[in-house]
Simulated scan of single mutants.
Amino acid sequence: MTAEFLVHIVDDDFAVRDSLVELLDSVGIKAVGYESADAFLTEHNQEMAGCLVLDIRMPGMSGLELQKNLKEQGSTLPIIFITGHADVPMAIEAIKHGAIEFIQKPFRDQELLDCIHTTMEYAKKSYDKNIEKKLVLDNLNSLTDREKEALELVSEGHPNKVIASMMGISQRTVENHRAKLLEKMNVKSTAALIKVLLLANSSQ
């Protein structure tokens, strides 16, 4: 199933939300607006793809609080903050906690569009990487306990002779394990196997 990449705009000012949705629509980017952080959270799910354009100051839950909430949920949606002059120190703090960028009011349409284009490209690459990581984890889960033991030793760089001794099996059996590992992990070489293991263990 192909993900639909949307720009999610969270701002309590209807005029701002409406104008941003129209602006993005005019350049062929799908967007949806939310009047509050709570309204966005009601619709949010882990399958959402795209990016979040978020006002830093709103009644009720602030943009910073929403960012924290999403981070705790494990959300991977990249965030662009919209800030007033007095909010810049807060926005810098938000960047430290993972936001992609902040745009200071008043901003030019093109400035925001450029930022959104860059962020959406990042979102698509991140989404593809997460899909690839999920496939790798699924493959890892298909391994038997014995294959996982062999995989750990292979990943540590031990030659077949050493692995055979450590596992109490013949070198031929180790070779069979290696071949099975490559097949199940859908790779062609030990180097490629190590690469997908690094992906599986990555934080992103």
Rank of each mutant, 00 (worst) to 15 (best):
V154C: 09
S155N: 15
K96L: 09
D11M: 10
E183I: 05
F40V: 07
V10C: 03
L151F: 11
G63S: 10
P159T: 12
A31M: 10
V136D: 02
H117A: 11
I169M: 09
E132G: 01
I80M: 07
A123T: 05
A179P: 03
M58T: 03
N176K: 14
D114Q: 13
T2M: 13
G168D: 04
A49V: 05
I92A: 08
M90R: 09
A15R: 11
L54C: 07
I100F: 15
E93A: 13
V27Y: 04
M166S: 12
G63F: 09
E93M: 08
A3F: 05
S75H: 05
D38T: 13
L181I: 15
K129W: 06
T118Q: 12
R108N: 15
L193C: 08
R146C: 00
L198Q: 14
M166Q: 15
T173R: 14
M120I: 14
F102P: 03
S26E: 10
K134L: 11
M48L: 14
K125N: 03
Y127N: 10
D25F: 09
S189Y: 10
L20I: 12
P159H: 07
N160C: 06
E35M: 07
V88H: 01
E35C: 09
S19L: 10
E101A: 12
V32Q: 14
M120C: 07
Y34S: 04
T190N: 14
E156M: 15
Q46N: 14
K68G: 01
L20E: 05
V174D: 01
A150T: 09
I29N: 01
T119W: 02
K133Y: 03
I131P: 00
N139G: 02
M48I: 04
V27H: 04
